[in-house]
Design a protein around this nucleic acid. Structure first.
Lengths: 144, 144
DNA sequence: GGCAATCGGATTAAATTGATCTGATTGAGA
DNA sequence: TCTCAATCAGATCAATTTAATCCGATTGCC
């Protein structure tokens, strides 16, 4: 019930990338230096995000990458799915996996679909544009 | 972004237990046989759920356990938290963990709190009573 | 044509998780 | 009263997944 560290890192990295909206060339080294994340980790994330189509990367000396869509069109769900794969709370939700012992008479499965949709909706409701905004959050009291 | 198998099993197990609302004595062997889950796994779950206060267990020959609250008063969030600990999408949300590299200027954290709340709300909205209902789901088309 | 810089995939080590085993506890029966 | 059987509880061990590192392929510049 916790998204992986890599997905977490990816969100931080993409958020930092969104702040460089104007500059064309971004590279892994720059973002690693900026976010404090290890360079190899950032490189790995670049590979995955590029494969998912969220960023467009070019190799070579003058290479680098940039967001393939404007920040407002990239949601947390996109990033999480790019790193972790489809959002599915239980393996039941994925089609084709049927190792559940009570497959036939499982009452839990349909409700999990509902929960799953709620989770995905919550993630899809937050865009990179919101994350890269300066400081729109008015002193959240958190879970005091 | 997927809850652990143990938490999944716990939901199935508690759902099966809720269907035995009338009978006082439940034991791990019975539920293992009924759900098809391995007996040691069910025993482990019983320990955790008992520790969390969701079930009341007694040892000895005539021992066993029962739900400490009515099924309508036990939600998925309760079960998941009993097995996995506090629901927190990122370690940022847990108080006291500050190994994030961009702690000071992190724009992601407050939004994660929102997402986290949405997830927990979705889990808290489903009770054991709903899960143990016979078949209220009218032929879900799923993700065809 | 050589060189430097970048992404891409593969390998290795660590951590978390899941399953098994053994021990402590309790009640029933002789 | 004592022994035995049945149960939960905790600890141990193996497996899977995950995260970090390393090396190779590709490309533009000099």
């Amino acid at each position: 019930m916790r998204l992986s560290s890599l997905a977490d890192y990816a969100v931080v990295m993409m958020s930092a990338a969104a702040r460089h909206c104007g500059s064309i060339r971004l590279n892994a080294t720059l973002l690693a230096d900026e976010t404090g994340l290890p360079l190899p980790t950032v490189q790995k994330l670049v590979s995955k995000l590029s494969g998912a189509g969220l960023i467009e990367s070019t190799r070579g000396t003058g290479g680098g990458f940039r967001l393939s869509r404007p920040p407002a069109a990239i949601s947390l769900a996109d990033i999480v799915e790019a790193i972790e794969g489809p959002i599915a709370m239980t393996s039941c939700v994925d089609t084709g996996k049927h190792d559940c012992a009570v497959e036939g008479s499982c009452r839990v499965k349909p409700h999990m679909g509902t929960v799953n949709g709620a989770v995905r909706g919550a993630l899809a409701g937050v865009t990179l544009a919101q994350l890269s905004a300066q400081a729109p959050v008015p002193a959240v009291a958190e879970h005091a």
